[in-house]
Each structure stands twice: as C-alpha cells, then as structure tokens.
Design a protein around this nucleic acid. Structure first.
Lengths: 198, 198
DNA sequence: TTTATTCGCTAACATTCGTTAGTATATTAC
DNA sequence: GTAATATACTAACGAATGTTAGCGAATAAA
C-alpha cells in the first residue's frame, strides 16, 4: 500500500536489519520467521525481498558488522603504547560498551552465529579464533613481565568474554544498577582476578 | 523392525533423552527435528512417540533435571558450616564439574530454556531467579564480614555463572588443558577477583 | 508528460515440521 | 500355546516455513 519512507531514503534496509537483530535476539534465528519480521517492519513478508537477498543474508550482515568492529578495536589496542593490564581493561570496557549500546546485534553475533551458511561460517569461526588468540597473547605478555598472575591465558580469555556476555541478564533485569557502575564492578572483579597478589 | 533393547529395559526413554540433549546442544532446540533425533536413536520419527509425549516434553525433562541438581546443591551449601568464600568456591567447582561431566544437558538447560512452554517456562524462570538470589545472598554475607570485596553482588553472580558457561568453548577446543587445571584456573581468576586486597 | 524504477501487494510454490492413526511383530505373562 | 502388552513400522495430516512470480501504484528521471 503506502510506502513508509521516502524513496531517496536508502535506510530502508537498515531498518530491516535492526528489526531483524531485535527479533533474532528475542526468538532465536531459527524460530524467528520472515512473516514475524515483516510484521515488525510494517510490511508483508514478500516485500522484504525487495531489499534483501535472503534470511541468512541478514544474519551474515549482523554478525560480520559486529565482528569487524571488534577486530578494528583489537588493532587499535595492540598498537597502543600502554601496559598490558591497561590494554585488557580497555578491551573489557569496549566489550561492555558494545554489549550495552548495541545489545541486540552483539547478542545475535554471540549466540546465533552457528546458523551462518558455510562460506561465511568458516570465515566467522576463523575470525573468532584469531581474536581470542590475540587477546590471549596480550595476557601472556602481561604474565611474562609480572603484571598479570601466572594463569592459563586461553582460559582467562574464555572467562572474560563469557562473563561480559552475561550482561544479557543485566539488560533484562528490572532493578539494574547504572551502566557505569556495572562497568566498574566488572572491571574490578575481572581485572582483580588477574592482578598478582601484592 | 527389530527392537534395539529388550522389553524389560526401561532405559529406552533415557537413551532418547540423552540423544536429544546432544542434538539440541548441537543444532539448537528449534533447528533439531524429531526426524533427526529418530535417526540418531536408530528408529523412525513416529516411533519416538511410543516413549515420549512431545518434543517439548524432552526439553522440560532436560531442563528441570539439571535445575533440580543445582537447587539441591544450593541447599547443601547453604546448610554447611564453612566460611562464605569457601561456599562460593564450592559452588563454582560444582558448576564446573557439572559443565564438564554433564555437558550436553547443562548446556541445553543454559541456552535453550526459552523454548519451554508456558507453565514450565515461568516455573523455570522463577527457579533461576531464586537460585541467583540465594547465590548473591552468600556473597553479600561475605561482604558484611569483610571476607569478600565490596562489590555489587548480583553483578558478581552474573559474572560467575556466565564465565562458567564459557566452558562450552573449552569443551570444543582441540588443545584443552585437563579438567583439574581448568577448574583451578577458574577458581583462581574468579575467586581472586572477589577477595579483598590484603 | 512520458518513461523507468522502486517498492508495496496477493497468490502460490515446494519443503519441512510435529504429530496421529492404524497396523504388524516381537516379547512377556498366564 | 494363547492372550496381552510394548514397540516398531508406513502413510498421512495440517500448519508453518523461506522464497518466487507477477502485478499495480508511487516516485524519480527524461
């Protein structure tokens, strides 16, 4: 019937993407149907295909959009001339920030990537593995110069990343503390577990 | 055609349950079909219904089986006469043990519970909320007697539980350290983040 | 104003889904 | 041996899925 946005506004697809992120997060990728998505966009299901190629394409774009942001941050942090422990806290803060301010996409990227189709799936898994390796390398560097407790670095990375993923629960919580306080608490607990007893 | 187990062996359903856990974990509840499950049991899809009521019933039983084990452990820990910090480490070790030795069910309980049908869904969410409250209460008690750093207890619980959920990645890892070392590392990092600077 | 393009719609498609009905066979109980 | 029960099978159902085809109206370009 009526077009919702003017023609020259190319952000129609971006609206679909953001609605898709919310829907995939709420229902899960498999349980979210194109008809649901269409409804939340305010359009019939078939009309979506004037803007997108397929349901999976939506997942591709969401996942790699998020992944690229994290990779870019990792580049910056690696290049920075600051102590290792600060690099880690910087990364933790970035993760938390992303989780809070781009909740839906980050969550989808975190929990629904396994439904990616295969050229993309392997690519994504490689990027993920690489990211964790680079994170672990920073921790190992910190261990060598005694600014970090001697622990198994891959295990530490695993703990950090999943702990941050838990903000999901905070996000849904009714009586939530404010974002800054949350960040500070997480850095205290997670960072505190890394620093050697002084 | 041929029955796979003898009649008086009542564990046919348990086989289905354990195959379901593995399948739900691998594919996700929605993406796992009864025909896939049947294949992995070695039977036609319709035959499953001689043993189970529905697909959702499988999820119920998996989720509440796990949830009940954790609730029972919490009862024990609360009743024990040991310092708060030891209670917490005890719980952490229990979580890790469960995650390692009952991986598939625990994972499914953790990540797929949202597909429970509604009398069960609310029930499950309540139990979950209650469990976290009781966990947080132990932390708060520890804070009051100065054996734990003054932090936001609900946030700490959230971090702990999700960090442990990350063992999922360890489980899939090719070059994994052994389970005891993993446990020790996690207790060091997570416990270390809680103890006050001395 | 005419022409081309964008973007909505309805209708329909082939698959896949969970599940039921009805039947046959093998085991157990008597 | 006979009756009863447990459990496997084949066939089929209605519903929901992602997606395509084709059409009409609105916008942009000429």
């Amino acid at each position: 019937m009526a077009r919702i946005q003017t023609h020259n506004n190319s952000s129609r697809k971006e609206l679909i993407l953001s609605k898709a992120a919310a829907l995939f997060r709420e229902k899960g990728f498999k349980a979210a149907s194109m008809r649901h998505l269409a409804e939340s966009v305010g359009v019939e299901a078939a009309s979506l295909y004037n803007h997108i190629k397929s349901k999976t394409e939506l997942l591709h774009e969401l996942c790699f959009g998020v992944a690229n942001r994290f990779m870019q941050k990792m580049d910056e942090v690696e290049a920075a001339k600051i102590p290792d422990i600060e690099k880690i806290e910087d990364l933790i803060r970035f993760h938390i920030y992303q989780m809070i301010h781009h909740y839906e996409e980050v969550y989808v990227c975190d929990r629904e990537w396994k439904y990616l189709a295969d050229p993309y799936l392997s690519n994504f898994q490689n990027q993920r593995r690489m990211y964790r390796k680079r994170f672990a390398a920073i921790i190992e560097s910190g261990i060598r110069n005694n600014s970090i407790k001697p622990i198994d670095a891959p295990t530490a990375v695993l703990i950090l990343l999943h702990a941050i993923g838990g903000i999901e629960s905070w996000h849904r919580s009714t009586q939530k503390i404010d974002a800054d306080a949350l960040t500070q608490n997480m850095v205290t607990i997670l960072g505190g577990g890394l620093k050697p007893a002084s």
